[in-house]
Amino acid sequence: MSIQHFRVALIPFFAAFCLPVFAHPETLVKVKDAEDQLGARVGYIELDLNSGKILESFRPEERFPMMSTFKVLLCGAVLSRVDAGQEQLGRRIHYSQNDLVEYSPVTEKHLTDGMTVRELCSAAITMSDNTAANLLLTTIGGPKELTAFLHNMGDHVTRLDRWEPELNEAIPNDERDTTMPAAMATTLRKLLTGELLTLASRQQLIDWMEADKVAGPLLRSALPAGWFIADKSGAGERGSRGIIAALGPDGKPSRIVVIYTTGSQATMDERNRQIAEIGASLIKHW
């Protein structure tokens, strides 16, 4: 067993022997301040990774656009098919120029040779490549099948209805392509620590998230040296922004954090800054 596999296998073990965790309302004060600064709703939840206990939450059962955070769930569904012998990570998928959609920095470079399922998941999570996500959605049967996968996990809230990039439209009061912070946090925890996926697939999923290259201005910008984070960000229309993450000190994750916002007129930089400040408060009061 590799060191990384050992780390993920012992996530519940280490967490069980940690000192009790206590909620700190100071972080919620910052979440509410972010709402004021952005002029928009902000949803927040913080779960203990081992027990699933909610440590703090704000608007945990209000719907927010998922945006690209759905790509972690998508690759979880792909990995479940791999575990069941219905898919192979090494299978190569070929596609054409007509398949390319807006923001496809990886797939646009491989029109000639195609990409493997493993490479597509890596591109979808680490670079948020939209064509990679659409190609992977095709392998599982489309958005409705991802929703069905989530329902089978016990998540009857999260739903995907459309493809990239239309799913980022974020129309107010439109339930399409949305989740709730509580539902997303619980589902992410199941994917990373539950028995739904094999140990190898859980490790692969967290490795992809740990290698995320496009979430630097968010929670990662607030992390002290030595902290662990595996995350996936999302951005959408109407001032929408979000991030889902597993993080913790001492090089291992111990909490799940989900943050979503929508309806702001603020710039992307300002949305990023507010999420980073929430992260800084979380870490300060850990």
Rank of each mutant, 00 (worst) to 15 (best):
L223Y: 03
R118Q: 14
K232A: 15
S233H: 13
A40Q: 03
G248L: 04
L160N: 04
F149D: 14
L55S: 03
L219S: 11
V157W: 08
Q274Y: 13
L160D: 03
T186M: 09
F149K: 15
K190C: 13
T116D: 08
L146R: 02
S122H: 13
E195L: 07
E108F: 01
W163I: 14
E46L: 08
P217R: 09
A40R: 01
S96E: 05
W286S: 09
T178S: 07
L100W: 15
L192F: 04
I243A: 13
T27C: 08
G194H: 08
L192M: 13
T116L: 12
A132K: 14
L137Y: 05
L55P: 11
H151I: 04
T107G: 01
F149A: 12
N50C: 10
T27L: 08
E169G: 07
A222V: 13
D174Y: 05
T138I: 15
A235S: 12
S68D: 09
Q265S: 10
A124C: 10
A245V: 06
N152K: 11
S68L: 01
S68H: 03
I140F: 15
M115Q: 00
A266S: 15
A123M: 00
T158D: 15
D33M: 08
E56K: 11
G251Q: 06
V101W: 00
K284E: 04
V258T: 09
N130C: 09
A230M: 11
L49P: 14
A245W: 14
G236I: 14
V31S: 03
S68W: 05
L146E: 05
L247N: 00
V117S: 00
Y95L: 00
M153A: 10
T126C: 07
R271G: 10
D177N: 04
G141K: 02
G85C: 01
E46Y: 09
D269S: 05
E210D: 12
A40G: 05
A222F: 15
R41G: 07
S264A: 08
G279V: 12
V258E: 06
E277G: 14
K30T: 15
A84I: 11
K30A: 15
A182N: 14
S201I: 10
R255V: 02
L100K: 11
W227H: 02
L218N: 04
R41D: 12
T138D: 12
N272K: 02
A123E: 01
L219W: 11
Q265A: 11
P217Y: 13
V31A: 01
W227K: 06
A225R: 01
G251H: 01
M127V: 04
S221Y: 12
A211N: 00
L49K: 13
A246I: 11
E87W: 13
S264V: 03
H156N: 01
K30L: 14
R41N: 13
L38C: 14
Q265T: 11
M184K: 09
L146C: 00
E210G: 11
